[in-house]
């Protein structure tokens, strides 16, 4: 239901507001657009003119051999690195060079290759941190008597949401554990759950399956599919080709900082260049 609304909304928005006249390669409704992105570190060109789009409500995979520039692309989109060239647009608005918190507050939230849980905070604290628009994040509101009541009120609502999300991910039995005591896979789940607490539009997952056992991997994928049905969009960097090929509608292949090919998994599998890049790149 909300899916439909969402589609209608943005269609209207893109027909009116999009002054950008570039051709959308077979993607009608792009939630994320990356165009000629460039990033250099000293003499190394990590990303060299990468362009791609992510369709709204899709699970899109981003693959490529080591050193292809996937993580750097991620970091440029998320605002960790400031790109040296090109542009990034999210929901039709330019976010090139925005700070990480600005990108996140627009509804584009990322997770990390190595889970960055907040170790000495409990799972619940991790969850409570994430929601945006928390009134009590201002110093004086959290301290002054009258305003503090409002903060407490909001805390109560957030607590409810935190528990619901934990239940959805079936990690509510760990709620009061320090995040550092969780297993690697549970941390990945926590990170995804925490990212959802921000009410995002789109999630960028950097190797969500790395170090996750097969049972948990299945569970994680189930969650991702369930969330997709609820209308979230996903961009996933992943090394496991099976995961990408079996779960993504679209796949983007990067090689040497540029996009080598993009298309459906079957198209990608048929592309000899891609196979060559993988064999040649990884050894």
């Amino acid at each position: 239901m909300s899916d439909l609304e969402r589609g209608a909304d943005t269609e209207a928005a893109s027909t009116e507001g999009d002054a950008d006249d570039r051709t959308d390669r077979a993607v009608e409704d792009a939630v994320l657009e990356v165009e000629a992105l460039e990033k250099r570190f000293g003499g190394i060109v990590a990303v060299d003119g990468a362009s791609f789009v992510v369709e709204r409500g899709s699970i899109t995979g981003l693959i490529g051999p080591n050193g292809a520039g996937k993580s750097t692309t991620f970091n440029c989109i998320a605002g960790v690195h400031r790109p040296d060239g090109g542009r990034v647009a999210f929901d039709g608005e330019e976010i090139t060079g925005d700070e990480p918190y600005q990108v996140a507050n627009r509804g584009l939230v990322r997770t990390f290759q190595i889970a960055r849980e907040l170790p000495e905070m409990t799972v619940l604290e991790n969850m409570m941190l994430a929601p945006k628009g928390q009134r009590g994040e201002s110093l004086w509101r959290s301290v002054l008597p009258y305003f503090r009541d409002e903060v407490i009120e909001q805390e109560r609502e957030l607590r409810e949401r935190a528990w619901e999300t934990l239940e959805f991910f079936e990690i509510d039995h760990l709620a009061e554990e320090y995040a550092k005591n969780l297993s690697g896979g549970q941390r990945k789940l926590l990170e995804l759950a925490r990212a959802l607490q921000t009410d995002p539009e789109m999630l960028m997952l950097d190797e969500p399956m790395a170090g996750v056992n097969p049972t948990l991997e299945k569970k994680l994928l189930e969650h991702i599919h369930k969330l997709r049905e609820q209308g979230y969009s996903f961009l996933i960097v992943e090394h496991d080709m099976d995961v990408i090929m079996n779960n993504c509608e679209r796949v983007i292949v990067m090689h040497q900082g540029a996009v080598l090919d993009e298309g459906s998994p079957t198209e990608i599998k048929a592309n000899e260049q891609v196979i060559e890049a993988y064999l040649g790149g990884e050894v």
Binding site: P100, R116, L129, T198
Partner: peptide, 11 residues
């Protein structure tokens, strides 16, 4: 605990 993680959550 982790400033980048906090930033990435919009803080």
């Amino acid at each position: 605990e982790d400033e980048l993680a906090a930033k990435s959550l919009g803080k």
